[in-house]
């Protein structure tokens, strides 16, 4: 896993500054083969986006702008307002990030700068292995271990402490926003922690020793030297976690419980809800209605745009940071 991610976040491997170019005049078949491959693979991915756009056209014809304003989603009854799903997606991802980012950064810093050297390898290996655990297994864990616990212990306690006020109103059944974002946080935590660990471990020793020799304490070194100098890498870690959270499908199908028809837009952490990805999967098995597939492709397109925007803004921020750094 780390190989691929290293490559995508490391500007050196991205090879923008490549000087060597092979002269391939005498080597035509080789050259042709490579160009054909690149065109085919590029074409495949263009076809991928193109076909989803094309399939979504009947969907847009059916739903129009009410897609973004409609406040109820009930696929079986052909009520296609995607606002609850967009809110559900943003809420689950936002809550998961809120939990996972501080803990993930803290874990990364603790692994590199706090714990004794001989435990470092073991703990970072555990974290890296957990980053490749399939999401369905987090789903099973959430369903069979966490849901009963939330249902029997945590949610009744929270409800009694707050007298059922916001954000703990309604009947807690275990499933819903709380369970979904909790498990989502655990799911993206290893990704964020593993990449952040690589990033903070790559901070040059001279910088750290320089700060220490000027009399800075350990926490000052971390807060004022290590974190600022690895800011863009940390942002990359968060972006990757965000992408994974936004697109997470199977675990969310299993844990969120589907859109609540009384409160389609969740008003409580106990409420059930759905995300763009989870509702695609929820309804793909029994397509219905004239534009059944089309409407799901509309959801897919919205999801793709949201993830694209997240990636793009991360790239812009990184580029801006780099420019500031160079000036």
């Amino acid at each position: 896993m780390t190989t691929a991610i290293d490559a995508s976040t490391n500007p050196e491997v991205n090879g923008t500054g490549r000087e060597r170019k092979l002269s391939t005049g005498s080597d035509l078949p080789y050259r042709v083969l490579l160009i054909v491959t690149a065109v085919l693979v590029g074409g495949l991915f263009l076809a991928f986006i193109g076909s989803i756009v094309q399939e979504s056209i009947p969907g847009w014809r059916t739903v129009g702008w009410t897609f973004f304003t409609g406040t109820n989603w009930n696929y079986g009854a052909h009520i296609y307002g995607a606002l609850p799903l967009i809110v559900g997606t943003v809420l689950t991802t936002g809550l998961a990030l809120l939990l996972a980012v501080p803990v993930g950064f803290g874990t990364a810093l603790a692994i590199v700068f706090l714990i004794p050297r001989r435990f470092q390898l073991i703990i970072s290996s555990i974290v890296e292995l957990l980053a490749v655990v399939p999401s369905i297994i987090y789903g099973v864990w959430g369903y069979l271990t966490i849901q009963p616990w939330l249902d029997a212990t945590v949610q009744p306690w929270l409800a009694s402490k707050t007298n059922g006020h916001f954000p703990f109103s309604g009947l807690g059944i275990g499933f819903g926003l709380m369970l979904g974002s909790l498990v989502l946080a655990v799911m993206i935590l290893p990704t964020i922690a593993a990449i952040s660990r690589d990033v903070v471990a790559a901070v040059p020793n001279e910088m750290i020793e320089g700060a220490l020799s000027l009399g800075a304490t350990k926490s000052q070194v971390l807060r004022k030297v290590v974190v600022p100098s690895s800011r863009s890498g940390l942002l990359g870690a968060v972006t990757l976690g965000t992408g994974r959270a936004l697109g997470e499908t199977i675990a969310m199908v299993v844990l969120l419980g589907g859109v609540n028809q009384t409160h389609p837009i969740p008003v409580s952490l106990f409420g059930t809800t759905g995300t763009l990805a989870s509702e695609i999967a929820n309804n793909f098995g029994n397509l219905s209605g004239a534009a059944g597939l089309g409407v799901l492709c509309c959801l897919a397109l919205v999801l793709m745009v949201i993830i694209g925007l997240v990636n793009l803004s991360a790239r812009v921020i990184v580029a801006r940071n780099l420019r500031k750094f160079q000036q």
Binding site: A4, S8, G15, T16, V41, G42, F45, E55, A277, I280
Partner: peptide
């Protein structure tokens, strides 16, 4: 470079979308 960026973006796309694509084509 554009193609490479494209390939990298593909890594981050949700897997359910690939399912839809194969279903369609």
């Amino acid at each position: 470079n554009a193609v490479r960026m494209y390939v990298e973006v593909m890594i981050g796309l949700p897997s359910i979308l690939v399912g839809i694509f194969i279903y369609v084509v």
